[in-house]
Computed example of a mutant assay.
Amino acid sequence: MFIIWRARTLTQIIIAAATIVLFMAIFYWQNGAIATLVGQQPPSAIYKVDTNRRIVALTFDISWGDQMAPKVLHVLKNKGVTKATFFLSGPWTLQKSEIAKQIRDMGYEIGSHGYKHDNFTEHSNDWIRSQVTKAEQAIYDVTGVKTRLIRTPNGDFDKRVLRTLHDMGYTVIQWHTDSLDWKNPGVGAITQRVLTRAVPGDIILLHASDTCKQTDQALPAIIDGLRQKGFEFVTVSELLQEASPKSKLE
Rank of each mutant, 00 (worst) to 15 (best):
D118C: 12
D118M: 15
D118Y: 15
D118N: 14
D118G: 08
D118A: 14
N119R: 15
N119Q: 15
F120Q: 04
F120E: 02
T121E: 04
T121K: 14
H123Y: 08
S124E: 03
S124L: 06
S124H: 08
S124Q: 07
N125V: 05
N125A: 13
N125D: 07
N125Y: 07
N125C: 03
N125P: 00
N125I: 06
D126S: 11
D126R: 12
D126W: 03
D126F: 03
W127H: 05
W127M: 02
W127P: 01
W127L: 03
I128C: 03
I128S: 03
I128M: 12
R129D: 00
R129N: 08
R129W: 09
S130F: 09
S130K: 15
V132D: 01
V132E: 02
V132Y: 03
V132R: 02
V132A: 06
V132C: 03
T133S: 14
T133M: 13
K134T: 14
K134P: 04
A135S: 15
E136W: 10
E136L: 14
Q137F: 13
Q137R: 15
Q137T: 15
Q137S: 15
A138K: 10
A138C: 12
A138Q: 09
I139H: 10
I139G: 07
I139P: 01
Y140V: 14
D141C: 06
D141N: 12
D141E: 12
V142F: 06
T143K: 13
T143P: 01
T143S: 07
T143R: 12
G144W: 12
V145I: 15
V145A: 04
V145G: 02
V145R: 13
K146G: 05
K146N: 10
K146M: 09
T147Q: 06
T147D: 01
R148E: 01
R148P: 00
L149K: 04
L149A: 07
L149D: 00
L149H: 04
L149N: 01
L149E: 00
I150F: 09
I150Y: 04
T152A: 08
T152S: 08
T152F: 06
P153G: 08
P153F: 10
P153E: 05
P153H: 10
N154M: 12
N154A: 13
N154V: 13
N154E: 06
D156L: 13
F157T: 11
F157I: 12
F157E: 04
F157S: 09
F157A: 11
D158P: 00
D158A: 11
K159Y: 10
K159W: 07
R160W: 08
R160F: 08
V161H: 04
V161C: 03
V161M: 05
L162I: 09
R163V: 04
R163S: 05
R163Y: 03
T164N: 02
T164S: 06
T164G: 01
L165P: 00
L165G: 00
L165A: 02
L165H: 01
H166N: 02
H166W: 05
D167M: 11
D167R: 13
M168C: 03
M168P: 00
